[in-house]
Computed example of a mutant assay.
Amino acid sequence: MMFDLPDSQTCYATFFEDAAAARGHLWVGVTSTGIFCRPGCPARRPKPENCRWFGTIHDCLDAGFRPCKRCRPTEPQGADPLVARLSRAVEDAPDRRWTEGDVSALGIDPSTARRAFRRALGMTFLDYARMRRLQAGFRELERGARVIDAQLEAGFDSGSGFRSAFARLLGLPPDALTRTSADALLRADWIDTDLGPMIAVADDHSLHLLEFADRPALPRELARLHKAVKGRLGLGRTAPIDQAEAELNAYLSGQSARFATPLTYHGTPFTRTVWDALREIPAGQTLSYAALAKRIGRPQATRAVARANGANQIAVLIPCHRVIGSDGSLTGYGGGLWRKERLIDLERAYGAGHLEQSEAV
């Protein structure tokens, strides 16, 4: 489901008078300052004639607006306070080359920062800072820039360093994605959410992958898709990516638990059965791995169900976060346990509401 923006007067009134209704649906770009904000921003209200209205963060960035430093529209929320503080420092200086000495200068022990980021995101703080720099390079490549220009935008002096860092994050060097963009069967793009950046891959008809950009398994998953389409994986947007972004924003803002983005599965018949069963778990409820195994008629396959759950490569829309340990513990989650906890907390507000099933092919 896509969300059509109302007229400018309605957008202005909703954004500034009813932030709850606008959250997840509406962002404002202020032409006089060049920044964009989320609903509820404490900054001074701009004049109506200086406002441009957008339905996604991606559209704001594409239009050339910078994230507001007061409301932090692209900043992950719900993380450990130390993770949030250092994430904010990265957003304040996106092309800075962070070192452990820089962390110490903030009065933070580098080893403490390292542990906090590994616990929350599965990567170190320095890896996270490098990822955000790479996002700037990704955007340049998507716009058709040369690799060297994307490298400089990302703050890398060395071309080999940029290619190596890009390949570590995405599993492929930048050239592998840019040279096939004209005739790509699949396209990859970056989605910013309240839980952090995600990578989406889709064709013109359905979504094939949706993962948090810091998930360790992402490079392997992208490389697998690249091989499946014989290298015809490029950069850019398709309608299913736009639809998934709009539905994610509505879901994370508490507006709607409905997902209708068409999905394409990449897995064995057994894993597909497990993923279908995951999508039948109502928002606001959880199941143990053993209970899920019984639900699909394979009560002895608890471990296989757990492996299929971990192999899910469409986060949130296939809600593997709703599966917990038999003792009620959250257990593992590829996107980080803090995200799993926040998703489960968020869904309590949806009660017994069900996510509508997307068509999987």
Rank of each mutant, 00 (worst) to 15 (best):
F117R: 05
R187Y: 10
P240H: 01
Y251L: 10
I296S: 09
G55K: 11
G267D: 15
D102V: 05
N312E: 10
W190C: 06
K69A: 11
L330H: 03
P81D: 13
T112M: 14
V274C: 14
A89W: 05
I296G: 06
K69G: 04
T14M: 06
Q313I: 15
S87F: 08
V316T: 15
M123A: 12
G55D: 14
T193R: 12
L346V: 04
P282K: 04
D95I: 15
L343D: 07
T268K: 07
W338C: 06
G122S: 09
D7T: 00
P173H: 06
S326T: 11
A228R: 12
L355D: 06
P76G: 03
T302A: 08
T124S: 15
A43F: 00
I35Y: 02
R85S: 13
P197W: 09
Y128S: 09
K227E: 11
A250F: 09
Q313R: 15
H205T: 12
K230A: 12
E245T: 12
W27C: 03
P48M: 02
K227W: 04
W275E: 13
D157F: 09
A257H: 03
G334W: 02
Y265N: 08
F270Y: 07
E356H: 13
L222K: 02
F166E: 00
H208K: 13
D345F: 02
K340P: 03
G196K: 02
N309L: 11
G351M: 02
C71Q: 03
R307C: 06
S358V: 00
C37P: 00
V90K: 01
D7G: 00
A22Y: 05
A257D: 06
I199E: 03
A22W: 10
L195P: 01
L169T: 11
L222A: 08
L121I: 01
W338F: 13
R348L: 01
A129M: 06
A200N: 10
F259K: 05
Q357M: 04
R66Q: 11
T74C: 13
L233I: 07
L134K: 04
F15D: 01
P216Q: 06
